[in-house]
Amino acid sequence: MFPFVTTILRALRRGPATRRYPYEVRPPMAGSRGHLVNEPDTCIYCGLCVRRCPAGALAVTREPKSWTLDPYRCILCAYCVEVCPKKCLRMEPSHVRAAS
């Protein structure tokens, strides 16, 4: 019985182990692969990222200049980021919500 009393007291002192999500959101960790973004100003639309993408989530056309990402296909592997010659692709650490 007595070990249980200490457990209860400890639990009361520490409070809940969980976070009060969604009111309290953990900041994204540095270096986390949250979502992919492209800088259209520096992008040269070479299409290397399209050829690399394992999921077929990217599409690039030179004329007219367009770079599109299908966020539902993207597997967040950052394989395209490594190959980008202009370094205009990058992974942002924050995750996007499915419904936004």
Partner: peptide, 24 residues
């Protein structure tokens, strides 16, 4: 899982292994 995210950038799909070495 937090340690995995802090080191590899993802909780489950680490994607850090590559042919010829590791990516991070």
């Amino acid at each position: 899982l937090d340690l995995e995210e802090a080191t590899a950038g993802a909780r489950i799909m680490l994607s850090t292994c590559a042919i010829g070495g590791v990516r991070r």
